[in-house]
Design a binder for these strands. Structure first.
Length: 553
RNA sequence: GCGCUCGUAGCUCAACGGAUAGAGCGCAGCCCUGCGAAGGCUGAGGCUGUGGGUUCGAGUCCCACCGAGCGCACCA
């Protein structure tokens, strides 16, 4: 059990005991009674049970606190407790208990920070899922980084995680893309060909088709148009997906499953989900098109599923896809990460999930707000259609993968953010990314140094770690598992970069105040143990964020 | 016009309904003849967009307004 939960239990027991003795009137305590104070002088934890019960018990919070505190089992964990107006109970952990965790952390090693809150539950995180009609650009970077970090965190929380990319390989946009490729290919062969209306005019299409013309010669042009189009589409899709995969790997974003939209039509999932909607009476015919009545389930407008032409819309296959996620593969939890431009689809998808018989509360859609790219003071417009694109690849080359990940991760998804390219590069000598990694490298340096001197610290006595900076570092390390659990539960990875900075600060401060390798052999060994624990914690943070853990810089 | 999201230090951003709202960058100073100065310390800098409300307590919840972004297709 984690310390936080253990404390909550102790306070609930004491509260009940006080009631049993008649010291407090009956009434249930609140659910959330333990929190982390902002100020260190307020202790390691604060219990708010007294203030939260004041109303129902009709007693001043101070009186309640005074009745509860004497009955709390302090065990080996609690050093002391203070009652502070208006009714906080501040808890200080015992140094011995803190010190013991240095050993615990070292014993856990790479598993330190992992918790079991998600054990036995399967979660799917679907993210990026960009149409394979062009390279990944910076607008997608945020969701990519966010999704991969969230998946890492969920895995650390014990979930069985599937990282998934939904490949829209079936829609009208793809047809348009294929026709654009075909036209550019013919042009590359020197033939007359017109780009389709609203076609993909990016330079990458031109370049790709020139290569293709070189490779294939006129072979694809000599086929009947329909066949050539299909063939060039097949090749284009394959190459585009490969490029997307490579670009994503450059920011350490990988997937377990690349799920094909077309497969939903091939394996009958689409038919099945449409049939279910029909049986539920959610489908109506209007003007020759088939509509899903999402307004019956709280949406603000109905949605077309099958066009008058007979072609299913994107939404129809998305309905089938979510049927697959929730009812076929039966994930316990499904997280979709979308861009702000898909905001209006959230209620629609939730409605259709419900109509398909799934529990919509299992589905969470995280909307990542737009990223405004700036270069100097100038806004950079990124758009595939106009061909003015700033690719993810360019961004990574400019600011580096670690900086890229850190900056995207440090902001909560719903906050619109600005990313100034010049600033990110200019800051690179003095930016938080280096602060963290320098901390890790510094730790590695000390351990290297100790090893070179033949110092072994397995028999170090952690009871010697009594300096405030030492205990603060241990405290900070200890809160990582708690943070992982909270982030997984709330689906909020953005706390991790902030925690990592605090951990680095605690280490740097310790380093500054407490000489590790000294003439005092016993203290040296004890401190080396702490440094080792700090290495484990720091590395875990960086790994969860998908950042490098350099031993030297 | 309607819907969703967001307005917090000069800039970029944090803050389970809790205590004197915190970091980083930038700015002004100080600290290496001992393990990595890519570090540490000190200081200046805020009516949390505005106005109401809910309660022991509001940056956080509710209402109105102002401002920004994104939606409101038989595109995805």
């Amino acid at each position: 059990m984690m310390i936080r939960e253990l404390l909550a239990q102790r306070f609930r027991d004491a509260f009940a005991a006080a009631q049993a003795q008649g010291a407090l009137p009956p009434g249930a305590p609140a659910d959330e009674i333990i929190e982390r104070p902002q100020k260190p002088e307020h202790g390691d934890f604060a219990c708010t049970i007294a203030m939260k019960a004041a109303r129902t018990l009709r007693l001043p919070p101070i009186k309640i606190a005074q009745a509860v505190v004497p009955l709390v089992d302090k065990g080996a964990e609690i050093q002391d407790m203070d009652i502070v107006p208006p009714g906080f109970i501040n808890v200080r952990l015992s140094p011995a208990w803190l010190q013991g965790h240095v050993e615990a952390i070292r014993a856990e090693g790479e598993r330190f920070g992992h918790v079991a809150s998600g054990a036995g539950r399967r979660v799917q995180v679907e993210f990026v899922s960009v149409n394979p009609t062009g390279p990944i650009h910076v607008g997608h970077a945020r969701g990519a980084v966010l999704g991969s970090a969230l998946a890492n965190i969920m895995a650390a929380a014990g979930y069985d995680v599937t990282r998934e990319y939904y490949v829209n390989d079936a829609g009208t946009q793809m047809q348009l893309f294929y026709r654009s490729l075909y036209a550019r290919y013919l042009q590359a062969l020197g033939r007359q060909a017109e780009m389709p209306q609203d076609g993909y005019r990016g330079q990458y299409v031109v370049e790709f088709c020139q290569e293709l013309a070189k490779e294939m010669g006129t072979r694809l042009a000599d086929m009947p148009e329909e066949q050539g189009l299909a063939e060039i589409g097949r090749i284009g899709l394959e190459r585009m997906l490969a490029a997307i995969r490579t670009d994503l790997e450059a920011v350490r974003v990988t997937f377990d499953v690349w799920f094909s939209e077309r497969s939903l039509f091939a394996d009958g999932t689409y038919e099945k989900s449409m049939e279910l909607l029909k049986q539920g009476g959610y489908l109506v015919n209007r003007d020759g098109a088939l509509w899903f009545e999402s307004t019956r389930l709280g949406d603000d407008r109905d949605s077309v599923m099958v066009r008058r032409t007979g072609a299913p819309t994107y939404f129809a296959s998305d309905a089938a896809y979510h049927y697959n996620k929730l009812c076929v593969r039966k994930f316990d939890r499904v997280v979709d990460i979308w861009g702000a431009d898909h905001q209006g689809h959230v209620n629609r998808v939730k409605a259709v999930a419900e109509a398909l018989g799934a529990d919509p509360s299992k589905l969470t859609v995280i909307i990542g707000q737009m990223v405004a790219l700036k270069r100097g003071g100038e806004a950079v417009r990124a758009s595939k259609r106009t061909g003015e694109l700033v690719t993810l690849r360019e961004l990574v080359e400019e600011v580096g993968q670690d900086a890229c990940r850190f900056f995207f991760l440090a902001r909560s998804p719903e906050a619109q953010m600005e990313f100034d390219l010049d600033l990110a590069v200019k800051q690179s000598q003095d930016n938080p990314v280096y602060y963290l990694q320098y901390g890790h490298a510094r730790i590695a340096g000390i351990l290297r140094n100790a090893a070179e001197r033949g110092l072994r610290h397995d028999d170090g006595d952690v009871a010697l770690l009594t300096a405030p900076e030492e205990l603060d570092l241990i405290r900070k390390l200890l809160s990582l598992p708690e943070l992982v659990e909270a982030m997984a539960q709330r689906l909020e990875p953005h706390h991790l970069p902030h925690y990592a900075l605090e951990l680095a600060t605690a280490f740097h401060l310790f380093y500054d105040r407490c000489r590790v390798i000294s003439e005092d052999e016993a203290l040296t060994k004890a401190r080396l143990k702490l440094v080792d624990a700090a290495r484990i914690g720091m590395a875990q943070c960086l790994r969860l964020m998908g950042m490098a853990t350099p031993d030297r810089m």
